[in-house]
Amino acid sequence: MTDLAADLPGTRTPEFDVGGAVPPFVRPAGLEAWNRYAAVNDEFVPIHMDDEAGKAAGYPGAFGMGNLLWAWLHCAIESWLGDRGRVEHLECRFRAPALKGDEVTCGGVITGRKAREDGTTVLELDLWADRQSGDRLVTAKAQVVLQG
């Protein structure tokens, strides 16, 4: 890949430059969200439903699914990018779970922009999910391919 070579028309907007931000995607953590996710992913695991099970696992109470934070990262990118591009790769590490009452903010920043030999433009992103206290719940990296 070569930097900034052969950019496709329509992808050369400041929004997609290095340093550009993925807008915040904010969601409340708690049973209302976790139960809905459990219902579609059949993830009725005691640690996500029952405070005693959460405490037995070493946390203050029931806590949210890593899979839902993973989903929210996808939502953050999708809400930003729409049909202007697609996620090619996403990876994340879970550092702490969301707890009841948390307000979780997913965000990100463009750290790289490359043009591939086939003419496509690829953005590299650093992403995260934080709770309202600033605690980082998730760190992530992504590659997205811009549509021409």
């Binding site: 899979n67 090619e88 990876e91 590490r93």
Partner: peptide, 11 residues
Amino acid sequence: LNGGVSATYTG
């Protein structure tokens, strides 16, 4: 616990 995940999507 889920320690981390990654996915590579083909499109």
